[in-house]
Design a protein around this nucleic acid. Structure first.
Lengths: 218, 218
DNA sequence: CTCATCGCAATACAGTCGCAACGTAAAGGC
DNA sequence: GCCTTTACGTTGCGACTGTATTGCGATGAG
């Protein structure tokens, strides 16, 4: 056999360039030549690793999704073992919000893919399982950690759907520049307050102002 | 003066065709020729009413926004005068969810524009004011209608941000096919339960009020 | 060494894009 | 009657698109 190259690494390199292009100019600016230029390689090479544009798009979509997954995993592991459900969920969801420029860029790409998959149901199917799994996990943590579940004031399933929707909506709004990251973070904490009951004592600093209840980590 | 034509009507006709194209194939399929074909007119005519593609896009974005506004106004007016805050908000937000095929189509277009404006800050600016106005309105209704505000368990501002985010996120998820419309509606009601307290058994659906203002998106 | 195979570049091609330019039919103002 | 203005339709151009094809150097199996 002739020269061997790590295909996956090359594809990742190209997908990375794709995401840079998409983050700056949108998915419609993603063409073989643009991506090749951004990656600093020849258009022929891009074509060598992705026989079609759709193939490249699909791969990039998977990369976006894996990147988020890795981000969440890292954030959760930083909490140590057996974290409290509420803290766990907060860490996960806050990590998924576009709070810094890096995540803003990724968020723009993710949003573009959201619109992209909305008119390509076949591609969208790949995401359903992920959402379902995340939904189940969140519902489980809510059931395990919220005192409001016992007396029926909170239904874990519905609350999980709502909580993920809040995260998604906040992300979209922040990306749209409708309000700053701190507002989104404050709203996320308020949502957790609603689901888990008000936070116990320790952080009872302010109520009703517009400053975030907790400092943004980082 | 020569033949007079209602410019606005023509532009609306073209924008309508644009939205049909965008809903089916995404914004990237929106070209002068495609839109013209969908509208049943010549490409030259499209060019006559929109000197540039960007101009056409901007106009279409405004149409999307106005369409949602009209939808909400209609739904709210159907409630009659002085509706209860919770019922009012539910009617407004439920109307903005993609619960039927018509709203799904509009929702796909709105989502596409969301991604579109995310990389075109200049165009996005038009939406900020509207979101802010809606946010203020929702916060006001929460402050007026939720018993949980008095004892500090609900902050109207944060709750409004969260509520709108829920709506946005649910819409996105439903468009993505991650769960059916009923689930979204149930989650919306659960969110209203969290903000207003559990519904007092016999849910009154009616009583009306004045029409609020209403921004674009979704 | 031989040579099939892989990595990659370069080119060709048919199609679409936005946009400008030009042409023409109709309709008031004079 | 003309004459200017509006409302289009048509055509053309240059840039760009995705994809297929071809070519060639490098490399490791035989």
């Amino acid at each position: 056999m002739p020269k061997r190259v790590d295909h996956l690494q090359r594809r990742a390199l190209i997908a990375d360039a794709l995401m840079r292009v998409a983050a700056e100019q949108g998915l419609e600016a993603v063409s073989l030549r643009h991506v090749a230029a951004a990656a600093g390689v020849s258009p022929g090479m891009v074509q060598h690793y992705f026989r079609t544009r759709d193939e490249m798009m699909t791969f990039a979509l998977a990369v976006v999704s894996e990147r988020n997954e890795a981000r969440v995993r890292r954030a959760v592991e930083a909490l140590g073992a057996t974290p409290a459900p509420r803290a766990l969920l907060r860490a996960m969801l806050a990590e998924l919000l576009p709070l810094d420029e890096e995540r803003r860029a990724d968020g723009r790409v993710a949003l573009a893919f959201l619109a992209y998959t909305a008119v390509r149901p076949a591609v969208a199917a790949a995401l359903h399982g992920e959402t379902a799994a995340l939904l189940a996990f969140v519902a489980d943590r809510i059931a395990a950690g919220s005192p409001l579940v016992a007396d029926g004031r909170v239904d874990p399933e519905r609350a999980a759907v709502g909580l993920l929707a809040v995260m998604e909506g906040l992300g979209v709004h922040v990306l749209g520049g409708h309000y700053p990251p701190e507002t989104a973070l404050a709203a996320l904490d308020a949502q957790l307050d609603l689901i888990f009951g008000p936070e116990p004592a320790a952080a009872a600093v302010n109520r009703g102002g517009s400053a975030p209840r907790r400092p943004a980590r980082r």
